[in-house]
Computed example of a mutant assay.
Amino acid sequence: MLVFAASDKGGTGRSVTSCNIAYRLSLAGNDVAYLDFDFGSPTAGAIFEISKIDCGADVGLHSYIGGTISSPYQVDVRATSDRSGLRMLHAKAGRLALFAGDRGGAEFPSSAEKVRRCIELFRRLDQEFKVCVVDLSAGRSHALHMALNATAAPEIRSIPVRWLVFHRWTRQHIVAAHSLVYGNDGLLDEGTRAGHGREALQDAIRFVRTAVPVLNSPLSADRPAQAKWLRTCNDELKQLALRNRLGHSATLGETPVEPVLQWREQVISDADVSGNLANAATVEAFDELARNLTDDGVWEGL
């Protein structure tokens, strides 16, 4: 399965959430590949706390797609992470491999040859891993363009492909997520031009809400008037999401506001919860997203 993580704006929590989903999938026994296609900012290594590639590798995915190297550089997250909690190997855990971008890399234009190399990469990794998570640059980027063209190729059609569009629970982010998918030259327009069936592509897209306040939590509001105002805002956001076709029927799930992630973008381990650093609800949300993503019945039922 190929899973593409997209967002219209930066700061949506796309990368840190998709890293956590990949980690939870691996804990459940799946072999998972994480591809850092955020070409302008290849920093997935920092989220997995691998200091030697925290801003990318010397020769990574940029070099592979550009044809400089014949095989992309990868690291085993559990073997190379600086963080002891991530190096702990659960008995049933699967592999978790990171394919980093180039250090100092930047966005680069798509081309037929680059798309061909993406197709080769996706086909190869689909045979080796249960799930491949591809973190794309924000907006209508060259990375998004290449991914849409590659997944429209006949060689990819037998592989399940899913698209996750991340947005924060704010008016600006809801409108931006709608624009990325449904707007002019958005994901559906661009995908149709690349050769996707429009309806089939739309069926492969789900939204993920991030940093959603828990309204009955003391952290959300400490005064009755403020709590009432937040509930009103939440109701208005639900209506806005419905009008913009981002309602629950199109939403894979959501993550709550998490102080650990507000202060430090990282993978949250079970030890972080048992040590009372992170909230159990956050890990539960990541687990639910991982299950919903890979369960065909849940996905198709949305």
Rank of each mutant, 00 (worst) to 15 (best):
R223A: 14
G29L: 14
S15M: 13
L237Y: 11
E49K: 04
A100H: 02
E236R: 09
N184E: 13
G101N: 04
A271K: 05
L61E: 01
A22P: 10
E284P: 12
R162H: 10
K228H: 07
A112H: 08
G197F: 03
L215S: 12
D287G: 10
Q262C: 08
L125P: 00
S111Y: 08
D203A: 14
V16F: 09
S81D: 05
D31L: 11
I205S: 01
H248E: 13
S220Q: 09
L277E: 14
D38W: 00
L201G: 01
R78M: 04
R123T: 07
A33D: 08
P160Q: 13
E254N: 11
A22D: 06
P160H: 11
E113I: 07
F122P: 01
A281V: 15
V214D: 12
G253C: 09
C132T: 13
R223L: 10
G94C: 09
L242I: 12
S81N: 03
T232V: 05
L180I: 09
L86Y: 07
G10S: 14
R198L: 15
C118H: 03
E288M: 08
A278Q: 06
D126E: 05
D38N: 09
S274C: 10
C19R: 01
V257C: 14
W263G: 10
K114R: 14
A22I: 15
K52Y: 15
Q266R: 02
Y73I: 01
R116G: 12
R83N: 13
L187D: 01
E155D: 15
D270M: 12
P224R: 14
L187K: 00
R231G: 00
G66H: 07
R206W: 08
R123F: 06
H62T: 02
R264A: 13
S158G: 02
V175K: 05
V133A: 01
G67C: 04
R171E: 15
L125W: 07
S141L: 08
R231C: 04
L302R: 01
D126W: 02
G66A: 11
H62D: 10
S71E: 14
R95M: 08
D287N: 11
A28N: 07
S141D: 09
I47C: 02
F39E: 01
H178V: 01
P224F: 03
L98R: 00
E155K: 07
D126Q: 10
T80R: 13
E113W: 04
G195T: 03
C118V: 04
V161G: 00
S111D: 06
G191A: 08
T170N: 05
R157A: 11
P256L: 14
H178K: 14
Y23E: 01
A138P: 02
D296Y: 02
D58Q: 01
I119V: 13
G85H: 06
R24C: 14
A44G: 03
